[in-house]
Amino acid sequence: MTEATLTADATAARGTGEPMIVMEGVDKWFGDFQALKGVDLVVGKQEVVVVCGPSGSGKSTLIRCINRLEKHDKGRIVVDGIDLSDDVRNIQEIRREVGIVFQQFNLFPHMTVLENITLAPRHVRRWPKAKAREKAMELLERVQIPEQAGKYPGQLSGGQQQRVAIARALAMEPKIMLFDEPTSALDPEMIKEVLDAMVDLAESGMTMIVVTHEMGFARAVCDRIVFMADGEIVEVGPPEHFFENPQEERTKQFLSQIL
């Protein structure tokens, strides 16, 4: 079972060493189907973790539990010292700290790019309009599409939309960014522009958990790779370890299929 593979560096987080996200024995059920089976994971401050595994293995569920888009049924999740409980205030507080980028972008189609990005800062953080706007333009510069500020999401390419989604999440100045297969819905020629934005973010010291099949990104950027199968964490390790010397049979099988 899992204990065997949870080697020393699995629970000991990297980054600065301080834990940012702690998950202990997290279970999640969808009806009769168990999506997460006693997941233990600690992510350190400024650490970048890539989660991979076959479809249906619980990767998305894992990160969606962190900001309570899914409610875990058992176990404990602590985000930056805040215990994720049923208390609405706790949930709101955690959501301010955690940004998420979805596979399908989920931009608000009835708002312009600028409105998409300034919405939460203005209504949740109660920033004045000018400040929110300034921050939004700064973020659009950072993801290199300031000229699209006045357009609607439907007028942008997939890659541009996903970069707007990244800017929207960053506008709340989160301490943690979650990415749920951010490049899976993109045409091949647009994947790089999104990955570039993510690399830039990782280099700036953001704590990130990235569910992705982009192994190039994993190799180049991440501190640890988490391999999941059937709702369990099968293997955890730094990328060089993970790619060169996988321990588990299921990991080897998975790698042979995608590499």
Partner: peptide
């Protein structure tokens, strides 16, 4: 859409 709104804290 609702998830995205919740995730940014609305």
């Amino acid at each position: 859409q609702i998830e995205a709104a919740q995730a940014v804290g609305l």
